[in-house]
């Protein structure tokens, strides 16, 4: 139950002179929610892009204990990564806008269907195995639509759904690939407080019922603190802290780098004295 699911070792990603991720190591556990937080530009999304084959890491090893045993993600072609059991969503929603909600979820089961259809040739002749597989795919799609409360929207074009529902549909699509690790890039962005609370509940439910690991990038601290089992804090591409929500909440390094910078009254003592002196001198 508590086996490591994803082991990131010494991950470094350079773009020319810019080091987006610098010697990052961490382990995400199976059936746990691991959150990656950090200020904008800290390299969080770059980590996701390395995991899902968008970027090839400059240095580092990414071991994923996937459906067919351990696999080194940095050596895989992008389109094979879903087969090992990694799914992801995006900060800016990337649904297939001109397909229906249901079709979006069926596309996510493409591998399975292609194999069942004998790469379409047999599917064309209405081969039995294919029809059964397609029924199963539609069944799974409807199940996830239902869980997201989107069943009534099944035949809508994905692009015409309201924003909050598009977010849900994207998670549903990721779940339809039957992942072992679900990577969510700011799933609460643009949601109102009630929707965010629902989302938090949903993620905990997915972790417990589907028994999968979740890797979460999120700026909504109340949600991160409430549902994460483990938090990793990045700043300028480096890991500056790691621990449980309680540990992170009280970590002075984190407060300085991240939580503290928005609030004036938490300025260090010396700075406040300096400011006072400046004010007095004027």
């Amino acid at each position: 139950m508590n086996a490591p699911l994803l082991e990131v070792e010494h991950l470094t990603m350079r773009f020319g002179g810019l080091v987006a991720v610098d010697d990052l190591s961490f382990t995400a556990m199976d059936q746990r929610i691991t959150a990656i937080i950090g200020p904008n530009g800290a390299g969080k999304t770059t980590v996701f892009n390395c995991l899902t084959g968008f970027y090839r890491p400059t240095v580092g090893r990414l071991t994923f204990h996937g459906r067919f045993g351990p696999v080194l993600l940095e050596r895989e072609d992008g389109f094979r990564i879903p087969r090992h059991g990694i799914a992801r969503t995006f900060q800016n929603i990337r649904l297939f806008a001109h397909m229906t909600a249901l079709e979006n979820l069926v596309v996510a089961q493409h591998n399975h269907l292609m194999r069942a259809s004998g790469y379409t040739v047999l599917g064309l002749f209405g081969w039995k195995g294919y029809r059964a597989a397609e029924r199963a795919a539609i069944e799974r799609a409807r199940y996830w639509l239902d869980r997201m409360g989107l069943l009534a929207r099944a035949d809508w074009d994905a692009g015409s759904l309201p924003y909050g529902e598009q977010r849900k549909l994207e998670i549903a699509r990721a779940m339809c690939t039957q992942p072992k690790l679900l990577c969510l890039d700011e799933p609460a962005a643009g949601l109102n407080p009630r929707e965010t609370a629902e989302l938090a509940e949903l993620l905990v439910e997915i972790r417990d019922r589907e028994q999968i690991g979740i890797l979460l990038i999120e700026h909504d601290m109340s949600m991160v603190m409430r549902i994460s089992d483990q938090i990793i804090v990045l700043d300028y591409g480096r890991k500056i802290a790691e621990g449980t929500p309680e540990q992170i909440r009280t970590d002075p390094v984190v407060i300085k780098a991240y939580l503290g910078e928005a609030e004036d009254e938490e300025l260090p003592e010396e700075v406040r004295e300096d400011l006072a002196r400046l004010g007095g001198g004027a």
């Binding site: 990337r94 297939f96 596309v107 493409h110 591998n111 269907l113």
Partner: peptide, 22 residues
């Protein structure tokens, strides 16, 4: 067919299609 769906998915977003296993 799955092939047709994959083609339509690729038409809209190649990278996302790859992430769906296409």
């Amino acid at each position: 067919t799955p092939l047709g769906r994959a083609q339509r998915a690729c038409e809209q977003d190649l990278k996302m299609a790859a992430l769906c296993g296409v």
